[in-house]
């Protein structure tokens, strides 16, 4: 029995910052490293994790039938074809929200704990019931945010709630980073965001059009061997999660043209 199972909630407060994309890519990346991983879609209202993983046509049972005990856990788990180390437990019907309680989430996670080394929970947006249920079942958390005021503000709110619920450790992933805009000081820098939120940075993900292409296909970037910028970032995050010492990419140092060097000089903090 795997008692050292890592149970990690992936949350953000604000919707659309990249929780589900991160969950899918981390799940694949961890599985590729040979780690038995399950991704649990806790967004019962607006589920999408199945779609990003390309597993939407293979769902027979969901967490709902598992909880109602009308099927066994292994019947509901959808194994990924190319990465058999990864399984998805799909979210049930949105009507589940009427009766789902923290106890139910805890029961599901407890079942998954026995068979997997990593349980990644894709949290719904918001800070209401769905979030509270998911928080009650987790040990640690990854907060995803974008370098935008609304996303950072909501992340701060979520971090406060995670702290009061005793979730530890809480780490930060800064998604959709655009080095050029940061160099021109038209986007919050990585340092700005980590200073404001006072969280350890697990990694940053560079803005990358390939993310959209990969979601169109239902094949997370980390599944292929093509090294697009975001793909490298996701793989690095998975490795750091497993304890490997992978240095962070410094977006300010990408590009060594004269203009970039000049812009870097202009960013020197004076006071």
């Amino acid at each position: 029995m795997a008692t050292n199972t890592r149970i990690i909630l992936i949350c953000s407060g604000k919707g659309g910052v990249g929780k589900t994309t991160l969950t899918a890519n981390l799940g694949i990346a961890l599985a590729r490293e040979g780690t038995k991983t399950v991704v649990l879609d806790a967004d019962f209202g607006l589920r999408n994790l199945d779609l990003l993983l390309g597993l939407e046509n293979r769902i027979i049972y969901t967490a709902q039938e598992v909880l109602e005990e009308t099927c066994r856990l292994d019947q509901a788990l959808v194994k990924h074809k190319q990465e058999p180390n990864l399984a998805l437990l799909p979210a049930g019907n949105p009507r589940m929200l009427d009766w789902l309680k923290p106890d139910d989430m805890q029961r599901i996670v407890k079942m998954l704990e026995n068979d997997f080394e990593y349980v990644l929970i894709d949290c719904p947006a918001g800070v209401e019931e769905g979030f509270k249920n998911a928080v009650s079942a987790t040990k640690e958390a990854i907060v995803v945010t974008n370098p935008e005021v609304s996303a950072v503000r909501d992340a701060d709110r979520v971090i406060g709630l995670l702290n009061t619920n005793g979730v530890k450790p809480v780490q930060l992933v800064l998604n959709r980073v655009r080095p050029k805009m940061i160099a021109n000081q038209e986007m919050l820098s990585v340092e700005d965001v980590t200073d404001i939120l006072a969280l350890p940075l697990l990694g940053l993900v560079l803005e990358d059009e390939e993310v959209i292409v990969s979601t169109n296909r239902g094949e997370p970037l980390t599944l292929s061997n093509v090294n697009s910028p975001a793909s490298i970032c996701y793989s690095n995050i998975a490795k750091r999660l497993k304890g490997e010492d992978i240095p962070l990419i410094d977006p300010a140092k990408s590009g060594s043209s004269l203009k970039n060097k000049f812009m870097r000089l202009m960013q020197t903090k004076i006071f």
């Binding site: 005021v149 000081q185 038209e186 919050l188 820098s189 700005d192 202009m266 903090k269 004076i270 006071f271």
Partner: peptide
Amino acid sequence: MTLLDIVKKLLGRQQSSALKARERLQLVLA
């Protein structure tokens, strides 16, 4: 305040939007 902010100030240009974002966030989060 960075060198770029000072140059922008001297040129009478608007303060960088990243600095503005940081200031607004610090206030609203407090």
